[in-house]
C-alpha cells in the first residue's frame, strides 16, 4: 500500500506544453467554460444540434454549464426534460435517427445507468444492425474527489468501452474538452462524453476561439520523457503530470500520454511510448478491476512485451463505491501521491 505521509503534491504548477498548433485567437477558459463554448459554437453553426436534459434551460444546469443557453437558442433546442434518463437518451436516439444531432445531458454521469439500456442496446447496436448512424452525444459530469458520495462520483467509462458500438471520450484539459466535444457532436456514432466535475472550475488554459476540433482516437503525448511512460486519461492526467514534475527533480524523465478517448483507442501512440521508455505505469481514477487500464496493459503486453524492462503497473481507484467522508474518499481514489509512489516503485524494479 502507498504511504500517505508524503506532503501532498499540488496539481497546479506543472508546465503544460501542448503539442497542438493553434492558428486562431485564444481565450483563457475553464474546463466547464470550454465545454459550454463548444456546445454554443455547434448550436450556432448547425440547427440540427440541440440539447436535452434535466434543469438545463431555466436553471442553466446543475453546474450552470448551460447558463443562458435557452435565451439564445430557445426552449425547444435547450429542452428541459422530466427525470427520465431512459426517455432522454431514447428520445435523443429517435431524434438522431430522424436527422438531428442531439446532445443529452446526464445531470451526473452516475445517472447514465438509468439510460444504460438505450445507449448499449439501442444506440450501440444500430450501426451494426441497421447500417444507420446515431449521431448523439450523452454527456455529463463524472468522477470523485469532491465529497459527493457513491452516487455522484462514479467513473463508469469502462462499461461503455466494453459495450461495442459506443465511442467514449474523457478529456483532461479545457482545450481538449472543447475540441473533443465538437468532434463528438459531428461524429455519426453515439458518443458518451465524460466531463470530470473536479476539473470543471479547477483548471484554466488558453482555448482556441471558434472552430477547434480534436479528432477522436488520437492520444496526446503531453510531456515527453525517456525513462518511463504514464498512460492515463481524465483526472489521472493531472496526477501523472504532478508526479512527473516531482520525478524530474529526482532525475527521472517521465513521458505522459493522455489517451483522451477510450473508444477509439490510439494503440499506436501508446505502444510507441512503451517501446521508447520501456517502463509503463497506467493511471485512471475508475476502479481497478476490469478498468480500462487492464485493456491498455494487455495491448502493451501483447504487442510490446519484448520492449519492457519491468512489469506494467496500474494506479486506479480501489474496488469500492466512492465514499463520502474525505478520509475514506482519499483512501479509495488515486491521487498524485499514489501515482508518484507507483512510479518510484516502477523505476526501482
Amino acid at each position: 500500500m502507498f504511504c500517505f505521509s508524503l506532503p501532498m503534491i499540488k496539481i497546479v504548477g506543472y508546465v503544460f506544453d501542448s503539442q497542438l498548433s493553434y492558428n486562431s485567437t485564444m481565450a483563457q477558459l475553464t474546463y466547464l467554460e470550454a465545454i459550454a463554448d463548444a456546445l454554443r459554437f455547434e448550436m450556432r453553426r448547425d440547427e440540427r444540434v440541440f440539447m436535452m436534459g434535466e434543469d438545463i434551460a431555466t436553471y442553466g444546469g446543475a453546474f450552470k454549464l448551460t447558463k443562458n443557453f435557452h435565451e439564445e437558442f430557445g426552449r425547444q433546442r435547450v429542452l428541459d426534460c422530466p427525470i427520465s434518463e431512459a426517455a432522454i437518451v431514447g428520445a435523443a436516439i429517435g431524434a438522431a435517427l430522424n436527422g438531428m444531432r442531439p446532445v443529452a445531458e446526464m445531470q451526473f454521469m452516475d445517472f447514465v445507468t438509468c439510460g444504460f439500456n438505450q445507449i448499449v442496446n439501442v444506440a450501440g447496436t444500430t450501426a451494426y444492425r441497421w447500417g444507420l448512424g446515431v449521431p448523439m452525444v450523452v454527456r455529463g459530469p463524472s468522477g470523485g474527489g469532491v465529497g459527493a458520495n457513491p452516487f455522484h462520483s462514479r467513473n463508469s467509462e469502462a462499461w461503455f468501452a466494453h459495450a461495442s458500438g459506443v465511442k467514449v471520450v474523457c478529456p483532461a484539459f479545457p482545450a481538449d474538452a472543447k475540441g473533443l466535444m465538437i468532434a463528438s457532436i459531428r461524429d455519426n456514432n453515439p458518443v458518451v462524453f465524460y466531463e470530470h466535475k473536479g476539473l470543471y472550475r479547477k483548471i484554466k488554459e488558453e482555448v482556441p476561439e471558434g472552430e477547434y476540433i480534436v479528432p477522436l482516437g488520437k492520444a496526446n503525448v503531453i510531456r515527453e520523457g525517456k525513462d518511463m511512460s504514464i498512460i492515463c486519461y481524465g483526472s489521472a492526467v493531472h496526477f501523472a503530470l504532478a508526479a512527473a514534475e516531482e520525478l524530474s527533480k529526482e532525475g527521472v524523465s517521465v513521458e505522459v500520454v493522455d489517451i483522451r478517448t477510450l473508444v477509439p483507442f490510439d494503440e499506436e501512440t501508446v505502444l510507441a511510448s512503451a517501446r521508447k521508455t520501456n517502463r509503463v505505469l497506467i493511471a485512471h481514477e475508475a476502479s481497478l478491476t476490469a478498468g480500462f487500464g487492464g485493456e491498455i496493459a494487455a495491448r502493451i503486453a501483447e504487442k510490446a512485451f519484448e520492449y519492457l524492462d519491468a512489469p506494467i503497473l496500474r494506479v486506479a481507484g480501489y474496488d469500492a463505491p466512492t465514499p463520502f467522508a474525505p478520509t475514506l474518499e482519499k483512501a479509495v481514489l488515486p491521487n498524485a501521491e499514489k501515482v508518484l509512489m507507483a512510479a518510484r516503485k516502477l523505476m526501482e524494479y
Binding site: 433546442r77 428520445a91 435523443a92 431524434a95 438522431a96 435517427l97 430522424n98 438505450q118
Partner: peptide, 25 residues
C-alpha cells in the same frame, strides 16, 4: 419502418424522439 429490439419498451422513447425531431422542424 424501424424495427424493435428485444428489450420491449425500449422503442417507446425512441419512436417519441423521432417525432420530436419532426416537430422541431
Amino acid at each position: 419502418i424501424y424495427g424493435n429490439i428485444s428489450h420491449l419498451g425500449a422503442m417507446i422513447p425512441v419512436a417519441a424522439g423521432f417525432v420530436l425531431a419532426s416537430k422541431m422542424r
